[in-house]
Amino acid sequence: MTCPRKARLRAVLKHWVNEVKTSQDGNESVFVAFYIDDLSGILERFYNGIDLSQKIHRKLLNHIDRAMNFGSKVQTDAQINLENSNNPNKSNTEQYVQDSTGCAAAGPITLNSHHPCQPAMGKITFYEDKAFQGRSYESTTDCPNLQTYLSRCNSIRVESGCWMLYERPNYQGQQYLLRRGEYPDYQQWMGLSDSIRSCCLIPQTGSHRLRLYEREDHKGLMMELSEDCPSIQDRFHLSEIRSLHVLEGCWVLYELPNYRGRQYLLRPQEYRRCQDWGAMDAKAGSLRRVVDLY
């Protein structure tokens, strides 16, 4: 017997793919804005499985790359609203998604309405040697395996966007957040070696909000944040966070205060235990919103 939740997910994903394949009226940018912010969180609510969400994420990105040109036909929200007002018979496509408890989400997912997430646009260049010397590789999107292009990485230039770098392929190992700027050696991004094997472009949102819990499974004392927190200990008198629920935006959790130590990228989804965000223990020192300041 087919699991209703899995069947529901398949139906939602099929609709998204068809939306991209068949769209001819300039609404591609709306789909991408919706997709980038919500896909990871929705998949986690269904499966709590990072490996599966990454596989589906990559497949859908391939469909998007074939179906659209990111640099053309970008509509503003005002244009979209004007089209809808001029055509009252045009109905929005709505899909209701269940959360991890099996309850319906707070509201419908409307593909043609305003969504706070903006399509991620970025450009990063990796260099094998220090001071931007040696063989280089330029990327404008996620890359699960940089070893195909470079044997090592000793300097990086970020021209736009916010990026998370990983010391191992497939977004594994130590993580390093990079914003726009120049990094002439790996110490500049707090790296431990010249090993950078994968990277992802982090989507931008207009607002950020998350909830922290002192116990696993979102139990115990709950605290909410909507701004950077340089010291969780000073703010909440806690040195450990057992579970998290990211409601809006992407965040980086740091192991130590003042944005130092190991880093963990947090996307909009539920994290019921520290292992869900890739940590070995619940030690937490600071939290920072991922915001492109330029």
Rank of each mutant, 00 (worst) to 15 (best):
V20Y: 08
I80R: 13
E270F: 01
E224Y: 02
V290N: 10
T125S: 07
F132Y: 14
D51N: 01
S243P: 05
G122F: 04
M222P: 01
R267I: 02
S155C: 04
L201I: 06
D99S: 03
S40N: 03
I50M: 03
A11R: 12
Q95I: 15
D99A: 03
N145C: 09
N87S: 10
L178K: 06
L244Y: 01
H115E: 07
G41Q: 06
G220N: 06
V30A: 12
G71P: 00
W16E: 15
N89I: 04
N89K: 11
M222H: 03
N170G: 01
A120R: 07
Q172I: 03
E255D: 12
Y294R: 11
E240Q: 14
D77R: 05
S151I: 03
V290D: 10
Y254S: 08
R66N: 11
N89W: 07
N48Q: 10
R152L: 11
H208I: 05
N27Y: 13
R288G: 00
Y294M: 11
Y259L: 13
P169K: 00
F126H: 02
Q172H: 11
R267D: 02
Y166C: 09
K123N: 06
R197C: 15
H218R: 07
S29K: 03
D185I: 00
S226D: 15
A131E: 15
N18P: 00
Y186K: 06
N145T: 02
R179M: 07
R272G: 01
I124F: 03
R180V: 14
T93M: 12
C103Q: 11
P184S: 11
A284G: 09
M222F: 02
R197N: 12
P88F: 05
G107R: 08
F236G: 08
R152P: 03
A120L: 02
K123W: 00
N258T: 06
N258M: 08
G278Q: 08
R215G: 01
V290Q: 11
H15T: 14
N154R: 14
E240V: 12
Q24A: 13
T22R: 08
N258Q: 12
I232L: 15
Y127T: 09
Y176F: 15
F34K: 12
P203H: 00
S72E: 15
L192S: 13
A105H: 05
I232E: 03
C200H: 01
D38P: 00
E44H: 13
P119N: 00
P257R: 09
Y186E: 09
N48G: 04
